[in-house]
């Protein structure tokens, strides 16, 4: 489902990663500065590797030797950022509908209802992002990414900006997402406990290198 073999130099920092994930949730674990976000940005196409290949769901989206670099908007990925990044000029409902409209997909009310129910955001639909709490914002961002019908969902520390109470509020939704939404995920975190609950496979990054790879046991 995801194969990564890349090298990238960012100033003094060099990132080198080689792994293939088949699990439902690949946990990308490492301290801040280990290169997790850069790696995810490369999978998303926001950052271009210096050398190597990235394959999503059988499609080569990056291959520096062959000169392939599929732009972000054609990768059919969903990306949930730490800071939600909801569009402030659109209502929650319009935010949720954005990906479907941009991809020219037909409306799918059943899927819409399913996602809205899964994330409990039905009561927020008419609100503006400025009027949401941090946790609500993150749930809407999850819904927005899911409704663009991605083949891979990238979550970059989606709980990172929340306090402990809010984290506990969102975590069950993420578990439900994993078990019900049927979209493979790459979940970035520096929190081992979080990944133990969510991930099915772990890629451990240290100073730009993959130090271990395997089941959740490698976190121990």
């Amino acid at each position: 489902m995801l194969r990564v073999d890349i090298e990238k130099k960012l100033g003094e920092f060099s990132l080198q990663a080689n792994f293939a994930g088949e699990g439902r949730v690949i946990g990308l674990f490492g301290a801040s500065g280990a290169g997790k976000s850069s790696l995810v940005n490369m999978i998303a196409g926001l950052l271009r590797p210096d050398r190597g290949t990235i394959v999503i769901d059988g499609e080569t989206v990056d291959d520096t030797a062959a000169g392939i670099h599929v732009p972000t908007y054609r990768r059919r990925i969903g990306y949930v950022f730490q800071d939600a990044r909801l569009f402030p000029h659109l209502s929650v409902a319009q935010n949720l509908d954005y990906g479907r409209r941009m991809n020219g997909l037909a409306p799918d009310p059943a899927q819409h209802t399913r996602v809205v129910d899964l994330l409990d955001i039905g009561a927020l639909l008419d609100r503006r992002p400025g009027k949401l709490s941090g946790g609500e914002r993150q749930r809407v961002a999850l819904g927005r990414a899911l409704l663009s019908r991605p083949r891979l969902l990238l979550l970059d520390e989606p709980l990172g900006a929340l306090d402990e109470a809010r984290k506990l509020e969102i975590l069950p939704y993420l578990v439900r997402l994993r078990d019900e939404a049927n979209v493979p995920m790459v979940y970035v975190s520096h929190d081992a406990a979080e990944l133990r609950q969510l991930a099915t496979q772990i890629v451990m990054l240290k100073q730009g290198r993959v130090t271990s790879f395997g089941g959740v046991k490698v976190l121990a």
Partner: peptide, 18 residues
């Protein structure tokens, strides 16, 4: 304008002109 909003739009499938 926060350019990260434009990045978010791109990840949702919007071409640059969109």
């Amino acid at each position: 304008i926060d350019r990260r909003l434009e990045q978010a739009a791109e990840t949702l499938g919007a071409a640059p002109w969109k």
